[in-house]
Amino acid sequence: MIQLRNIKKAYKTEFTSLQVLKGIDLIIEEGEFVSIMGSSGSGKSTLLNILGILDDYDEGTYTLAGELMKNLSEKQAAYYRNRFIGFVFQSFNLLNFKTAVENVALPLYYQKVNRDQRLEKAMHYLEMVGLKDWSDHHPNQLSGGQQQRVAIARAMVTEPKVLLADEPTGALDSTTSHEVMNLFQEIHQNGKTVVLVTHEQDIAEKTERIINIQDGLILNSNE
């Protein structure tokens, strides 16, 4: 599903050049449940941004579902982000002026799906995360755990190839963290490829494979 070969990325300023990724080789198969671990500054967020086509890379090749992700125009990048990838963020990143169901439906808006179909599909995914009764609530009326579940529904609504989660439990207490991880587990069991970035060992241990990253290189990838 995901194939990285010798990915290098440097952040350049006028005077300095900071090499963040120094040659990443990584293969993630379809249906895998993987976590990327590393301390801050290790390059794990940059790696996730590249996987999510939010950021570009200087060298190497990144193939996602058989398509080479290189030198994409803004429009192409937007297309792949919308069709191939579902994002879950640490701080949920829901739009406050939209209701839960409208938030979930938003990615479909960019696929030009009509409103009724959008809301119907969004409702289905809200039901999947157990928030059907909360569909017309605004994000500020929901708890953190509920918000993150709405965000997961939003990531799933386009039926992406890969679900990318950036510290999805970072803003949650341990009980809700547990619930959210169970939800990821469930999604994984339904055959979805899930990649999450975390620095919490107990969260990472719930996944099938932990990829440790340090100073821009992969240390090991224990099965």
Partner: peptide, 16 residues
């Protein structure tokens, strides 16, 4: 800015 960032992550094109 943040909202625009979210929209872009969800697949909004510059045109939209």
């Amino acid at each position: 800015t943040k909202e625009i960032g979210i929209r872009k992550a969800l697949g909004a094109t510059p045109g939209v």
